[in-house]
Nucleic acid binder design. Structure first.
Length: 219
DNA sequence: ACATTAAGTGATT
DNA sequence: AATCACTTAATGT
């Protein structure tokens, strides 16, 4: 009975996000094989070097994807939100490549995890699924280019503003609960520099600062 | 009251 | 824009 309810819930979750993209037979099949994963704020969902067994689709919440090297240097690449999957993790799974990225939960989130075998089979079986995966590649690629643009063509102060408004948009709040160090890590900068830039923004009346908190005033 | 962690500042490269 | 070395402020125990 509870088993029944859980799989019904999964179907509802899937329908809510993918109902208009994927046919109901596929959605039902997905609901049957999906495993639920709940994550807490700042929980690391995937680490560099991990070997993925299952591929996630985000149902609720948001996940940030960042690059990280051996010495712990980071750079935020893009975000995943409701209905998003990361097609790159599919390649990771099927080719047995270790993950090159780190995925961190930005808020309490709910993911549905799918075994690789099914994902591959659906690729042959459902053209809507193939389209979904290809679309995912496309959006990921666009976002990657956007983040390259930001690094190559924008000053750090511009990047910081973009970062703040992105965070606000995704977390649905103008109140961002991050330390300056966390912001610096995401932007691959240093805490001192970020503190100074934030101070400037506060002086200009764009934001309000307090410990562990940045409040956006003009967005 | 004390220790710890976050944030601010001046000087240097 | 980054780093160092140091100060000051906020918070938890």
């Amino acid at each position: 009975m509870t088993q029944m309810l859980r799989s019904e819930n999964k179907l509802e979750m899937l329908q809510a996000h993918l109902g208009y993209i994927l046919e109901s037979t596929l959605l039902e099949e997905m609901a049957q094989v999906a495993k639920i994963r709940e994550t807490a704020t700042d929980e690391i969902v995937v680490n560099v070097g991990d070997h993925l067994q299952m591929i996630p689709i985000v149902i609720d919440g948001s996940i940030k994807i960042s690059r990280e090297n051996e010495s712990g240097d980071e750079l935020l690449l893009y975000y995943m939100e409701g209905g998003d999957t990361c097609a790159m993790s599919l390649q990771c799974c099927t080719r047995k490549i270790d993950s090159q990225i780190k995925a961190t939960s930005m808020e309490p989130s709910l993911l549905l995890m799918f075994p690789t075998e099914y994902m591959e089979r659906w690729l042959d079986q459902y053209k809507t699924w193939r389209q979904f995966i290809l679309d995912s590649y496309h959006t990921r690629m666009i976002e990657l280019m956007e983040s390259i643009d930001a690094i190559a063509f924008m000053n750090l102060d511009q990047r910081l503003l973009k970062y703040l408004s992105d965070q606000a948009k995704i977390l649905g709040s103008v109140e961002i609960n991050h330390t300056h160090q966390q912001v610096a890590d995401d932007l691959h900068s240093s805490r001192v520099v970020i503190s100074r830039l934030l101070k400037q923004l506060e002086t200009k009346g764009e934001i309000k600062l307090s410990r562990n908190k940045i409040i956006l005033l003009k967005f």
